[in-house]
Simulated assay, not measured.
Amino acid sequence: MAMLLLCGECEFKIISDSASIDRKIKFHISPKSNIALKFLRTQLGSLLAHQFRGKGLTTEQIPWNEIALMVLGKVKADVQDQPIVVIT
C-alpha cells in the first residue's frame, strides 16, 4: 500500500473497488480503505510540499505525519501504552 502513497500518478476508483498507479499497476481495495488511502495521499502530498519549502510542521500536520510514518513502516505503534486510533 505504500506504493499507492508515494509512487506515480494514482487513480482511485471507489465504484469498482480499485486503485491504479500510472494505469499500469492495479489493486483491488475495499471502498473504506480506498477513501482512506486517497485522503491520506492528499494529506501526505501537502505535508511533503510544506516540508520541502523548509517550513516546520503545524499542529494540524503533526498527527498526519505520524500516521504516514506508521503506514510507511518507519514507526511501530506500541499497543500497550497508546490508545488504538481508528480512522473512519
Rank of each mutant, 00 (worst) to 15 (best):
residue 7 C to W: 04
residue 8 G to H: 01
residue 9 E to G: 03
residue 9 E to A: 13
residue 9 E to W: 00
residue 10 C to G: 02
residue 11 E to F: 05
residue 12 F to G: 03
residue 12 F to I: 01
residue 12 F to K: 05
residue 14 I to G: 02
residue 14 I to W: 04
residue 14 I to L: 10
residue 15 I to Y: 07
residue 15 I to C: 12
residue 16 S to L: 11
residue 17 D to S: 13
residue 17 D to V: 05
residue 17 D to A: 13
residue 17 D to F: 13
residue 18 S to G: 11
residue 19 A to D: 00
residue 20 S to M: 06
residue 20 S to G: 04
residue 20 S to K: 04
residue 20 S to T: 04
residue 20 S to N: 03
residue 21 I to L: 08
residue 21 I to Y: 01
residue 23 R to I: 05
residue 23 R to A: 15
residue 23 R to N: 14
residue 23 R to D: 07
residue 24 K to Y: 04
residue 26 K to D: 06
residue 26 K to G: 02
residue 26 K to A: 13
residue 26 K to Y: 04
residue 27 F to E: 02
residue 28 H to C: 12
residue 28 H to E: 08
residue 29 I to Y: 02
residue 29 I to L: 09
residue 30 S to K: 09
residue 31 P to G: 03
residue 31 P to L: 09
residue 31 P to I: 06
residue 32 K to V: 06
residue 32 K to S: 12
residue 33 S to F: 07
residue 34 N to Y: 02
residue 34 N to G: 09
residue 34 N to I: 07
residue 35 I to G: 04
residue 35 I to F: 03
residue 36 A to I: 06
residue 36 A to E: 08
residue 36 A to N: 10
residue 36 A to T: 06
residue 37 L to I: 05
residue 37 L to Q: 08
residue 37 L to K: 06
residue 37 L to P: 02
residue 38 K to M: 14
residue 38 K to G: 11
residue 38 K to Y: 03
residue 38 K to P: 01
residue 38 K to S: 12
residue 39 F to S: 14
residue 39 F to K: 15
residue 39 F to M: 15
residue 41 R to F: 06
residue 41 R to S: 09
residue 42 T to H: 10
residue 43 Q to N: 05
residue 43 Q to H: 08
residue 44 L to F: 06
residue 45 G to D: 05
residue 45 G to V: 07
residue 46 S to C: 11
residue 46 S to M: 09
residue 46 S to A: 11
residue 46 S to G: 11
residue 47 L to F: 04
residue 48 L to E: 06
residue 48 L to G: 07
residue 48 L to V: 14
residue 49 A to Q: 11
residue 49 A to F: 12
residue 49 A to W: 10
residue 50 H to T: 12
residue 51 Q to G: 06
residue 51 Q to L: 14
residue 53 R to N: 11
residue 53 R to C: 09
residue 54 G to F: 00
residue 55 K to R: 15
residue 55 K to A: 15
residue 56 G to N: 09
residue 56 G to E: 10
residue 57 L to R: 09
residue 57 L to D: 01
residue 58 T to Y: 03
residue 58 T to M: 05
residue 59 T to K: 12
residue 59 T to I: 08
residue 59 T to E: 08
residue 61 Q to N: 01
residue 61 Q to K: 08
residue 61 Q to E: 12
residue 62 I to F: 04
residue 63 P to T: 00
residue 63 P to W: 05
residue 64 W to N: 13
residue 65 N to V: 05
residue 65 N to Y: 07
residue 65 N to W: 00
residue 66 E to L: 15
residue 66 E to T: 07
residue 66 E to R: 12
residue 66 E to D: 10
residue 67 I to A: 10
residue 68 A to D: 00
residue 68 A to L: 10
residue 68 A to R: 03
residue 70 M to L: 09
residue 70 M to H: 15
residue 70 M to R: 15
residue 71 V to C: 15
residue 71 V to Y: 13
residue 71 V to S: 13
residue 71 V to R: 14
residue 71 V to Q: 15
residue 73 G to S: 01
residue 74 K to H: 14
residue 75 V to G: 04
residue 75 V to M: 07
residue 77 A to N: 06
residue 77 A to V: 07
residue 78 D to N: 14
residue 78 D to V: 08
residue 79 V to M: 10
residue 79 V to C: 13
residue 80 Q to K: 15
residue 80 Q to L: 14
residue 81 D to R: 15
residue 81 D to A: 15
residue 82 Q to M: 12
residue 82 Q to G: 10
